[in-house]
């Protein structure tokens, strides 16, 4: 449950100056905007356009007691549980995908009472962010009626004052911080996304603080020439981090496919060895490489090019 009411969220937002200033900063500095105990909304969906660089930086800061929310939670949830950064996940689904089955880590933590997984339906999560983005306390839906999710979440029902029908109400979610990876942004934070928008426009507008990583930082004039493509306006953004391959090993639409070999190797090792495998992964891929360059060197140029070529084929940009 969000602890911030829509009134408090509005007051917090009004208290901040929002000039069109240069917001570029290093990933480590941007990640320091996440504080212990924050509710952090993660952009993208599952292994698509996940802000992996920003998430690694937050883990490197050794934050504690974070609440993580995401529409579908991929293995980044496992990294945060095992590292001790979070014990609270808010999502509609957790795992990597059908071929990999249930998450052993999430099972161990939740079944052992060491973590809480707050499950909403996928639309309910979307409407909670959307209500936040709208600045209203809740939104009505027919989703979750007849489901036990109505009982286990903070949803409520009401009788529609216009039609007399029953409605499910989902409370607005106002994240403290949203971490979002985009295709391009100018230094002020005007950002454009190619392909699936997922829920990122809403989490950007709902959150108190928004950190963007961008494949490319572009001239503000380029944004002005293509303003119809802008998905997130500067006034919602607090930090802009230049991050080519910033979602890798997850995918970025049109630019690179998810490195499913890497994800598969991780998943197999975790299935066999449990939390020890996650700790080894954290050492090798999160705490070890101090920079984005060092992280990408673990994969090598050949692999990155292969994933890029594959993405261009799929989205018709090379054919």
């Amino acid at each position: 449950m969000a602890t911030v009411t829509f009134v408090e969220a509005r007051r917090r937002l009004e208290a901040k100056a929002r000039p069109m200033r240069d917001k570029r900063m290093a990933a480590a500095d941007a990640a320091s905007l996440v504080r212990d105990g924050d509710h952090v909304a993660i952009g993208g969906c599952l292994y698509s356009r996940t802000p992996m660089l920003l998430l690694r930086e937050v883990l490197r800061h050794r934050r504690r007691d974070l609440v993580l929310s995401r529409n579908l939670m991929c293995y980044e949830g496992e990294l945060f549980l095992v590292s001790g950064a979070s014990r609270d996940l808010v999502t509609s689904w957790v795992g990597i995908g059908l071929p990999w089955g249930l998450s052993r880590i999430v099972r161990e933590f939740v079944e052992g009472g060491r973590a809480r997984l707050e499950e909403w339906s996928h639309l309910a999560i979307g409407l909670r962010y959307h209500a936040g983005a709208m600045g209203v306390p809740f939104l009505p839906t027919l989703s979750m009626l007849g489901s036990d999710l109505l009982r286990t979440t903070g949803a409520r029902t009401m009788t529609c004052p216009f039609t007399g029908e029953q409605l499910c109400l989902v409370p607005a979610l106002f994240p403290d911080v949203a971490l979002i990876h985009v295709h391009r942004a100018d230094p002020f934070g005007n950002a454009q996304i190619d392909g699936y928008p997922h829920m990122d426009l809403d989490i950007a507008a709902a959150a108190q603080t928004v950190v963007l990583s961008a494949e490319e930082i572009v001239d503000p004039e380029q944004i002005r020439r293509t303003a119809d493509r802008t998905a997130i306006p500067f006034f919602a953004v607090d930090a802009v981090v230049e991050a080519p391959y910033g979602a890798y090993p997850h995918e970025c639409y049109g630019l690179y496919e998810a490195d499913l070999d890497h994800i598969d190797a991780y998943a197999r090792r975790v299935a066999a060895e449990g939390a020890a495998a996650v700790r080894a992964y954290l050492d090798e891929y999160v705490y070890g490489p101090a920079t984005l360059e060092a992280f990408l060197e673990l994969f090598g140029a050949g692999r990155l090019l292969r994933q890029s070529r594959s993405a261009r084929e799929l989205t018709g940009r090379w054919t």
Binding site: V94, L102, V106, E111, L117, L142, S143, M144, S147
Partner: peptide
Amino acid sequence: AERPRVRLPGSGGACDIACH
């Protein structure tokens, strides 16, 4: 639900598909 014996992946969009 509070302390499951097996934590399954969750609804995802299944509940929404079933409702709509």
